[in-house]
Amino acid sequence: MDPITHGMVGLAIATISGEPILGAVSLGTTLGAMAPDLDIVMQSKGHYAYLKNHRGMSHSLPFLAGIAGIISTVIHFIFPATAFGQILLWTFMGTLSHTLLDILNSYGAQIFWPLSKKRFSGSLLLVYDPMVIILSLYLIFSKEPKTLLSMKVGLIFVIYLFIRIIMKNRIYDKIIDKFGKDIHIMRVNLLPSMIGMHKWHFIIDSQEKSIVGEINIFNNKLKILKELEKKEIPFMDEITNSAIGKFFQSFTPIYHIDIQKKNGYYYVTFTDLRYFIKDDFLHHATAILSGELELLEGLFHPYSLNQSVSVI
């Protein structure tokens, strides 16, 4: 989610504490809720460095605890009348809210780094989710008793997530019914649309091809965006175990591999199937191998095929 939404959620959490809306606790929760996105500093080293590290270490439990401690120390110096432990507790809740919300959308986060580099993702919320914003504003501005209000908002949010889960299950069944008779489906991934609560993107992984599309839950219209045929790749292990192959697998769990042979060289294209914008996928990578399968070059294409960053 975007920093503004995270900051708004942090401020909403502060209202539950019973402390003044403008004070040490609210400052801590707001800054804490925005702090994990400090990994944006990696952008100074380029798109590759940023995307490789985004939602990694900075979204892990050790980092959340550490940054909460730093923020709380500074705030306690400014507001010495507020107990340090109180500031620390609520600031950590702010930092934790950031990672938990990011886990609920399709990009996910490495919450258990360094023990695990797995990126956990629930694929339920939009990047800019209107319900999260509405509930946060409700918490901030409502005059209702905060204990009752927080329980009400929490219940509404749980119901909202439950409805989103039901949506996913219904769409999954619809996709199986429509495509299951014609192709051998191995896996279906459902992701929230980037532009609307009423749309979901689906990625079908079958033996024959990958199908990427979207479905409108209001009218049940299903639209196929791309069909990518799978090719026989006899040296798949060499490709996936290469530097660029390992990077792309850590970058996205949902990808397609294509291969072409030109002038004695193999050109292998990796495509991240999660984000389809303006008639193309957002992220790609290219591996160039010699006829003897020696990796000559590995390129990452962030945001556009026109941008290339060397990985090896």
Rank of each mutant, 00 (worst) to 15 (best):
S26A: 15
S26V: 09
L27A: 13
L27Y: 05
G28A: 02
G28V: 07
G28Y: 05
T29E: 05
L31S: 03
L31V: 11
L31E: 01
L31P: 07
G32R: 09
G32N: 08
A33L: 10
A33S: 15
M34E: 07
M34L: 12
M34R: 00
A35C: 02
A35V: 06
A35H: 04
A35W: 02
A35D: 03
P36H: 10
P36Q: 05
D37F: 09
D37I: 05
L38I: 15
L38H: 10
L38G: 13
L38D: 01
L38V: 15
D39Q: 12
I40N: 09
I40Q: 11
I40Y: 13
I40W: 12
I40R: 13
V41D: 00
V41I: 15
V41G: 01
V41S: 06
V41R: 06
M42R: 09
M42N: 14
M42A: 14
Q43K: 15
Q43L: 14
Q43H: 10
Q43M: 14
S44C: 11
S44H: 06
K45R: 15
K45D: 03
K45S: 12
K45G: 10
G46R: 02
G46K: 01
G46T: 01
G46E: 02
H47A: 13
H47K: 12
H47D: 13
H47I: 00
Y48N: 08
A49E: 08
A49K: 09
Y50A: 03
Y50K: 00
Y50N: 03
Y50F: 15
Y50E: 08
L51D: 00
K52Y: 08
N53W: 06
N53I: 06
H54S: 04
H54T: 11
G56M: 03
G56I: 04
G56L: 05
G56H: 07
G56F: 11
G56A: 05
M57D: 00
M57I: 14
S58H: 03
S58M: 12
S58V: 00
S58Y: 11
S58I: 03
H59F: 04
H59T: 00
S60I: 06
S60H: 08
S60V: 11
L61K: 05
L61Q: 05
L61I: 15
P62V: 00
P62I: 05
F63N: 06
F63S: 02
F63W: 12
L64F: 00
L64Q: 06
L64A: 14
L64N: 12
L64I: 10
A65G: 12
A65N: 02
A65H: 01
